[in-house]
Amino acid sequence: MTLLATVTAAVASRPGAAAADEPVCYSRTVNDWVCPAYLVDRREQLVDATVQHLWITAAAVLLGLAIAFPLALVARRHDRLESAIVGSATTLYTIPSLALFPLLVPFTGISATTVVLGLALYCLTVLVRALLDGLRSVPPDVVESATGLGYGRGALLWRVELPLALPIVAAGLRVATVSTVALTTVGTLVAHGGLGNLISDGVFSNFRAQLLAACVLCVVLAVVLDVLLVGLQRLLTPWTRGAAA
């Protein structure tokens, strides 16, 4: 009983957990929502789920960005293709995630690929629009000056247009990232939902400490990633700092 004794000692401040032979706060009989002992004992499980959640989110947003970038470049040059591209992305966005994952399963199986691909497709609506808006926000004078200075199409894009488009693109990236963190939980349908797996398990085994911890971690993850993206954007666009403040 030494382990139990240490655990109860750790939560001795909680009411009802004072006696050494009382059950731990996440046992079936107590089933507290907040249970520090749970966080300590199951730390490994929580870390694994968070890591899975994080890499699925990151892979989905990066894949989304990789698909959205060429689409935005094509859409920018051809007006007719623009409505087709933005229209299809919006249509995809309409499909509920719990329905999109099954529709991908015949092609990608019960795997993390299904979740990453599905979430990347959701990112497209926001990212294509953000890239288009960003590139269009570049003042024509600047483009003209750069062309006059001898910039070719590639150099113009990478060294003039994209840096100037960055604040708007970053705003879209933040929206995409935060919603992807939330949506990753639905991946539990195909057994790859990161913290969503713990939420699902928590519901069906009535495990309150695990459920609340996973929910809180989800929101914390979204907020942390959002703050990191804001920081990254400030770092990459030092010229906006004075104006924004």
Partner: peptide, 18 residues
Amino acid sequence: SNVGRAIPTFALLALLVT
């Protein structure tokens, strides 16, 4: 809207039913 986006619907549902 920003707050709503960060909270997974699944998480809120799970908390409410438990």
